[in-house]
């Protein structure tokens, strides 16, 4: 018998109002599965940090409940603190001592037994690739090294849940990649649940099992990255039609014969994985759910009708588009806008 999926974090109607006026969280419902990497994606000021600080027992919610492995973050806060690791958004290590010493102090605070202490510390340092600089003063570390040291501090106790508030903020792409590779292998080894905040879409896309998008204190979308992308329904395939005479005539007199198209358009629309199709300016846009399946069939239809193709371009929705759509920050001329308009041809 398959056992039920274990839940790491369960949040119900969580609300936080700062100083009686700022509605930072507005009834958040969320469930994070154990041993998942979960990304909370949202624009600045959307409440990501607030949610993480509530989950890490830093203050009380105005209303609602949240549990970490069954422990209430308000009532059982002491127990919650024992099973979580946390890296705040801001810098959080002492810079006037060495990297090793930072971990040593935390090892002592957490009561790692003295026999295991050295090993745990070096393991954590190694898993973040810091073993060579560990005995140098943190003052002399680069931003990326400091971030990795902070994560190493949080890994020290092998927490059941690791909370990371924008873990790769300010890191260059290769440093980001290194951090994530280290985190993944750590997660694999210890089955840690990772909950991270970010506004890097690609990070959520590449590394998370599930994503929630938060906007103005509300979860506006939840699912796996590919589910979210699919929720936009569409991949758009644009076919630039070649005029048969293009090669011989002056380009200004050449145009695809529109009268040929209505029938074809109908036939393409009739294909069962095609959601919509539209034609203008010698470009045929077809909205499909899955381009890999739809493309051969569409080409077949076009070929039967003797239509020559000049170019095919496919636009897949990225998590950016999802983000821009649900976080309500669409700006003209972004990919999201084009896509949105394109999917609008169905109506």
């Amino acid at each position: 018998m398959a056992s039920a999926i274990e839940i790491a974090i369960e949040i119900k109607q969580l609300t936080k109002v700062y100083d009686g006026k700022v509605n930072a969280l507005d009834g958040v419902d969320l469930t994070v599965k154990a041993a998942d990497i979960f990304a909370l994606l949202g624009p600045n000021g959307s409440g990501k940090t607030t949610l993480m600080r509530l989950l890490t027992t830093q203050f009380r919610p105005t209303a609602g409940v949240a549990r970490a492995f069954g422990y209430d973050v308000v009532k059982d806060d002491a127990k919650v603190r024992k099973i979580i690791g946390y890296v705040p958004q801001e810098m959080s290590v002492w810079t006037d001592i060495t990297g090793f010493e930072n971990l040593l102090i935390y090892a002592k605070i957490y009561g790692v037994p003295s026999g295991q202490r050295k090993k745990s510390i070096w393991d954590a340092l190694q898993s973040m690739g810091l073993d060579e600089v560990a005995n140098g003063p943190v003052k002399k570390y680069s931003g990326g090294m400091i971030r990795r040291l902070e994560i190493a501090c949080a890994l020290l106790i092998k927490p059941r849940i690791l909370f990371l508030d924008e873990p790769t903020l300010g890191l260059d792409p290769s440093a980001r990649k290194a951090v994530w590779e280290n985190l993944r292998s750590f997660k694999k080894e210890y089955g840690t649940t990772v909950f991270f905040n970010t506004h890097y879409m690609d990070e959520a896309d590449l590394y998370s099992d599930e994503v929630a998008i938060i906007n103005r204190g509300k979860i506006v979308k939840f699912g796996t990255a590919s589910e979210l992308k699919h929720s936009l329904h569409s991949e758009i395939i644009s076919f630039s039609l070649a005029d048969p005479g293009t090669d011989f005539k002056h380009p200004s007199t050449a145009a695809a014969p529109p009268r040929m198209l209505p029938g074809i358009l109908e036939r393409i629309k009739a294909l069962n994985f095609v959601e919509d199709a539209a034609f203008n300016d010698s470009v045929l846009d077809v909205v499909v759910e899955d381009g890999e399946i739809a493309l051969p069939a569409i080409i077949e239809v076009l070929r039967c009708d003797g239509i020559l193709l000049d170019r095919i371009r496919s636009t897949r929705p990225t998590l950016d588009d999802v983000f821009l759509k649900y976080a309500g920050m669409r700006q003209p001329k972004t990919q999201g806008e084009v896509l949105h308009e394109a999917s609008g041809i169905r109506q």
Binding site: T56, R81, K82, Y86, P88, E90, M91, S92, Y110
Partner: peptide, 14 residues
Amino acid sequence: RETGILKRLLVAPA
């Protein structure tokens, strides 16, 4: 406090 050190310290079981 201005950095994140205190936040992290107060999230430790102490």
